[in-house]
């Protein structure tokens, strides 16, 4: 069996690693976006929206 640098096995692994990398990247962006949304919607006391009445 000849050993090639781009064996089918390597292509599958590369595809899997690329997919995982993209998913992790998207997850980081998602958490960052959520943080921005949550922080920007707090009032000056750090309460989430809708909490003013109970304070």
């Amino acid at each position: 069996m000849a050993i090639h640098a781009d064996h089918e096995l390597h292509r599958r692994r590369f595809g899997r690693n690329l997919g995982l990398g993209l998913v992790l990247g998207a997850f980081v962006i998602l958490v960052f976006g959520l943080t921005i949304v949550k922080v920007s919607r707090q009032d000056e006391h750090g309460n989430p929206p809708g909490m003013e009445a109970s304070q």
Partner: peptide, 19 residues
């Protein structure tokens, strides 16, 4: 090493699509 590789040849390694 060769025999290890031939073993791999028969293993169906999962791709991203399988997950």
């Amino acid at each position: 090493a060769m025999s290890d590789l031939s073993a791999y040849e028969h293993t169906q390694e999962a791709g991203f699509g399988d997950y």
